[in-house]
């Protein structure tokens, strides 16, 4: 047995002890060893809660974060119902469909208050037949995170927490500890159209895995693809001069 394999076995054993006997629900692989290698179990753990944060303007709009989560969770929509809990109602289903997520099958829940987000999310994660639940929340404390985690473990549903707050608001517990399995920081990245094409390329994100329980961390640029896996890691481009702007004009 190689040193790598022994390490992996030991890590898995530690993770099993940490999980306290909760069943292993499988993973959602990214299909790229550079990402799957640092994640415990070789992919995004199912039946756990994952936290995704934005940066700058994204903290208010949460567009790139939501797009990343929708692309990431699109394989889960085939396994069961997906619920999206939020206080605002600007999520636009045709845009989700454009990202490969079946927007017309998503169950959307609009709540009035911040604390209802976590309550509805916990309820959704604990229900049968739910594959994933996505919640947009301003912040989450250790207790609430633990409750969500327990609900996930009970039912096997995967939770995604999108951190965002209303326009002009600010976060109070940005660096607070949380009970989620992973924490990602996502920002949109300049897209690159296929060679010979003009206009915008497929959506790209700068993805930082800040924390992964039992795993490592890393930084990648990911792109939306139509392949077997919804996302693909693109090679880092060298630091070079930007080309002159070129616009795609639709024939009129």
């Amino acid at each position: 047995m190689s040193r790598q394999a022994r390490l992996r076995t030991a890590r898995a054993r530690i993770a099993a002890i940490e999980a306290g006997g909760t069943p292993f629900r499988g993973v959602l692989p990214f299909g790229d060893p550079r990402v799957d290698g640092v994640l415990l179990g070789g992919g995004l753990a199912l039946g756990r809660c994952h936290e995704v944060v934005g940066e700058g303007l994204e903290l208010e709009t949460a567009a790139a974060v939501a797009a990343f989560v929708a692309a990431l969770a699109s394989p889960l929509a085939e396994r069961g119902a997906v619920v999206w809990v939020m206080r605002r109602d600007d999520l636009y289903a045709p845009g989700l469909t454009g990202l490969g997520f079946p927007g017309d099958r998503l169950i959307q829940v609009g709540v009035r208050e911040e604390k209802q987000v976590l309550a509805a999310l916990e309820d959704a994660l604990g229900a049968r037949g739910i594959a994933a639940a996505i919640g947009e929340t301003e912040g989450i404390d250790l207790t609430a995170g633990r409750r969500l985690q327990l609900a996930c473990e009970k039912s096997g549903a995967t939770g995604f927490l999108i951190r965002s707050w209303p326009f002009g608001g600010c976060s109070s517990n940005e660096a607070a500890a949380s009970a989620t399995a992973t924490r990602w920081r996502v920002a949109s990245a300049p897209s690159v159209p296929e060679s010979g094409q003009k206009g915008l390329g497929p959506c790209r994100w700068r993805v930082i895995l800040e924390r992964c329980r039992g795993g490592g961390s890393g930084t990648w640029t990911m792109e939306k693809t139509d392949g077997a896996y919804p996302l693909r890691v693109v090679a880092e481009l060298g630091d070079r001069e930007l080309e002159t702007p070129q616009y795609l004009r639709f024939a009129s």
């Binding site: 289903a93 017309d104 998503l106 169950i107 959307q108 609009g110 229900a127 049968r128 037949g129």
Partner: peptide, 28 residues
Amino acid sequence: GADEEGVASLVDRLANRLGEARIWRDQA
């Protein structure tokens, strides 16, 4: 069948707690 009932009972709980208009699905 159990999954379908699980989703239906979740929808009922949320609709009765938050209001029927607050849980929906978008359609073209």
